[in-house]
Design a protein around this nucleic acid. Structure first.
Lengths: 101, 101
DNA sequence: TGCAAATTTAGGGAATTACCTAAATGCCTA
DNA sequence: TAGGCATTTAGGTAATTCCCTAAATTTGCA
């Protein structure tokens, strides 16, 4: 885990919000927007952009940044890219801060 | 704890290094530089600036930023300002990431 | 094949951050 | 109270980040 890269990817209000929304998609996105596999795959770019009130390209880039930092996991399904949290890395991050930092 | 403020104050390599150095001052600063109370008070601005290889004003500002975010605790003693880690806040941060984020 | 929808890439202006030097302030001691 | 040392404040340039629109790409489907 590249600590600085992870921290930087979290150092923006919108990106931090996205991470929180993805913790419980059903609580933060309209049900009809979520794929049946929402829990497994996550939420697609345009739905996240709508929720964030920002342009699709901006949010697409945010999501990519977080995926590169390994905080999110991307899955391409047809024309959609779904993003979900990488819970393992988040737990690693917490442990790292607790014990190493 | 203002999560975004805390994360931002950690989103810089030098500031992250400072935090690590302050975890064990005796391992990272020359003994003769450390006050007898180093463990209690922390390390002064100019010693940290020297270790970081950066100008004193820049480091002074970094330290102040981290203190405002409550990651560091500042103690003024005569003409020196000592900085040490706020271990409690760091544990809070770890728990927050583990359970809330 | 060819259009439509979702996403990504490119390119750019505005805002913020990084980090410096010079000047100002605070505190000690002769 | 003057001079010296540590720190902070001011002010500025360069680099990075924010976040947009336009264009290109990818994929599904009639």
């Amino acid at each position: 885990m590249e600590l600085l890269e992870v921290i930087k990817s979290l150092s923006n209000e919108t990106r931090l919000n996205i991470l929180k929304w993805l913790k419980d998609p059903y609580a933060h996105f309209p049900k009809e927007e979520l794929s049946e596999e929402a829990l497994e795959l996550g939420v697609c770019v345009s739905d996240i952009a709508k929720k964030a009130g920002m342009s699709v390209p901006t949010v697409s880039d945010y999501l990519k940044t977080m995926a590169v930092a390994n905080i999110l996991i991307a899955t391409r399904r047809g024309q959609w890219t779904y993003y979900k949290r990488n819970e393992q890395l988040l737990q690693e991050l917490a442990m790292h801060i607790k014990n190493v930092l």
